[in-house]
Design a protein around this nucleic acid. Structure first.
Ligand code: FES
Ligand code: FES
Lengths: 168, 168
DNA sequence: TATTATTCAGACAAACTTGTCCGTTTATAT
DNA sequence: ATATAAACGGACAAGTTTGTCTGAATAATA
């Protein structure tokens, strides 16, 4: 039995963790789910609060706040209003935007420009050995996020066909 | 090796970084490129050293060492030998394995089981609103990494049609 | 045998992402 | 006016990934 020495904080690690990565960052996952919920429950008259959002999508509240601030940045996706009856809402125009626009605000659309093997640039002139096969799949991925609108996803959730929280 | 924006310590940062994530972790990217190089340059008689590998794929040497240790773990992908004329090599059988086997060793094949919106489980019974569209793309991705063998990628690089380093 | 060149193993350091907190601002309601 | 309830914004804490270093083990060579 090898001795494991204590660390100041953090749990014991095997060192070689190399934990698996999801497609998007947590922030982006929360962002998409939040936007779907806001599209579902709000309009120019009816707003939803941070607490409602975090509860609905089962996300850490204060972290979600940061993300919502970012999403409301250019007021093109979600709009926020302060004060006692404040909250977040989306206009009908915003709801019609593609999911890709969320990825863009989160800066995660760069994923689709990157080399899958980590070369500095993904290019036709100096491709990695996965490039040609990968670009077809990548094209499908992009098309998927370009095609699907936030409103479409919200409608699916509304109909009870799909979910944006793991809870119950 | 491109130097990465060294900072004094925790100072200047926009806070809301939310930097874009690639498909795989750096560790996995290096792993795939390393394995391709080893397949290309080694056999049971000829070995390649850590230094050669890191130089060829333009990766941080000591970090690459960790990854190679992991890859040689079960001696099924790459084999290592110590001592003065030591190094790493792959058998012909190993070279015929799919790229997916690298992802498996790196623990990154879990990517393909995860919900794209971060729900606890990706399931048909309680799917997220992207699930049905996404699973088709996911299937293509899996097929891609299952189908392509390490030897095939190495052959492409050998023929000069593709590259595993950004340098020169 | 001594030297040298390699991988191995663990600790450590740096950078980044995720998550929490708290005081401030803003607008409404009492 | 005052209290209340919401978003805002900055600092900070916790956790993970990435990268570095050093000494030990190993095996060939001089
Ligand atoms: S160069 Fe690697 S994916 Fe295009
Ligand atoms: S449930 Fe989200 S991808 Fe399957």
């Amino acid at each position: 039995m090898k001795q494991k020495n204590l660390r100041p904080f953090g749990q014991q690690r095997e060192y070689t963790t190399f934990d698996t990565e999801p497609m998007f960052s947590k922030a982006t996952e929360y962002a998409i789910r939040a936007v779907i919920f806001i599209a579902q429950k709000s309009n120019s008259e009816t707003k939803v609060s941070l607490q409602e959002i975090a509860a609905a999508i089962d996300s850490p509240e204060f972290f979600t706040a940061k993300i919502l601030q970012k999403l409301s940045g250019k007021n093109v996706l979600i709009t926020s209003s302060r004060g006692r009856t404040g909250g977040f809402f989306m206009t009908d125009a915003a709801k019609k935007r593609p999911v890709m626009s969320v990825l863009e605000v989160m800066g995660e659309d760069e994923l689709f420009n990157k080399c899958v093997l980590g070369l500095d640039k993904c290019s036709e002139l100096k491709p990695c050995p996965m490039h040609h096969q990968y670009k077809t799949v990548k094209k499908n991925l992009i098309a998927l996020f370009e095609r699907k609108t936030i409103a479409q996803l919200a409608a699916e959730v509304n109909a009870g066909n799909s979910f944006i929280s793991s809870e119950s």
